[in-house]
Simulated scan of single mutants.
Amino acid sequence: MTGIFKQKTSSNILLLLVYGLILKFNRFLNPAGPAQQPEDHFLYNWLIGVLKPLHIAPVLYVLISFLLLYGQALLFNRICNDQKLLPRPNYLPAMAHLLTTSLFIEWNYFSAPLLANTLLIWIYYRMTTLPNIQKPGPAIFSIGVQIGIVTLLYRPAIVFVALVLLALFVMRPFRLREWAINILGITMPYYFLALVLYLSNSWDWNKIKPVFSISLPAIPSSIYHTISIILLVVPFMIGGYYVQANLNKMMIHVRKAWSLLLLYLIMAMLIILADGGSNFVSWMLCSIPITAFHAAMYFYINSRRMPMIIHWIVFGYAIYVNYWL
């Protein structure tokens, strides 16, 4: 399977759809409604408030979640190919995303982190293109607006503001004007939200401020969750080794893109601390950088059998998690 997705052929788009359906089809047989958490922010709560009176069947939420995950996989795969994160175009990032997101059932729920993750992929792409933009002002402002929307979906996502500022530091020479434009963009959604709340006579500061607490994440209470974490971490470490070993062969902008992914992962791990919840929904925000390093592992290992063995181990366990747990 890894050999098939290592090729860049248009038929792989359809094959990815079948691959994802095999992994996640049981979600359609046992559908769950949208996930709601105390950390959800105004936009997501408003969206759920709009959808609930419609009495939408849970299976439709599952369908939307699957399409979002499938779309995320294709979008991130295109970003990896455009930015040349791997030496040759392929569909390994898309395959890895559908596979890794099947290791936790919670990652397949319709949730605020799932919606935020979709926006964050696009934000990451815009950040990687910053060095090549002659007039970066509009792009930097757009990134700020999008990250502001992300924080209005999920309160702990406020830590991604630091990622955007670090991206400006890594990708661009320091210019105070650009940083000011970015901060203005980040606060813009809050201006509009405050205006709407004020005009509708429903002003409440608590609806705007991104409150969260720092606490240690819950220790996995199930051996199955522990195995899922191991199957995320071990391929990630192998992929990280191969990325590090091949850094000298990469162009400067590719190295920066990988560095940005690592910063992305660090910020997402801070989300886990900021959330401190008892479930794994918020861990979804780690999926994209982990996916990239998993794809690197499948690509760089010289042996033909080893990537295949690792893939089928993870695939088999993902099937077990989704169909028998």
Rank of each mutant, 00 (worst) to 15 (best):
P210N: 07
N279K: 07
H253G: 08
Y154G: 02
N279H: 03
W205V: 15
Y298A: 05
L176Y: 14
S202G: 10
L260I: 00
A296Q: 07
W122D: 05
V150I: 12
S142V: 06
S200W: 12
H311E: 09
I183W: 11
F212W: 02
N117E: 00
F169A: 11
L103M: 06
K256Y: 06
I223D: 10
Y224M: 14
Y191D: 02
N108Q: 11
G276N: 02
N26E: 10
I183S: 04
L69V: 07
N12I: 05
A94R: 05
W258D: 05
H41Y: 02
L120A: 02
F5V: 03
G137N: 12
L197P: 09
L60W: 15
N117M: 05
M95H: 05
P31E: 00
G277V: 03
V211D: 14
L195N: 09
G144C: 00
R88P: 08
L54P: 05
S202K: 14
N90E: 02
N26K: 15
L115G: 09
P113Y: 00
M284E: 11
K209E: 13
L103R: 03
V62K: 06
L184Q: 04
T226L: 07
L115K: 05
G185Y: 02
N248F: 15
D40Y: 13
R155M: 12
L63G: 09
P235V: 01
P38W: 15
F192Y: 08
D40C: 02
N182Q: 14
G148Y: 03
G148D: 01
M127V: 00
W312Y: 15
R155G: 03
I181V: 12
L197F: 03
I227E: 04
H294Y: 10
L270A: 15
A194W: 04
L119I: 03
P31W: 00
N201Q: 15
L63S: 13
I214V: 15
L54Q: 04
G144A: 03
F236M: 10
I123H: 06
R175Q: 13
A116P: 12
S215L: 15
R177C: 09
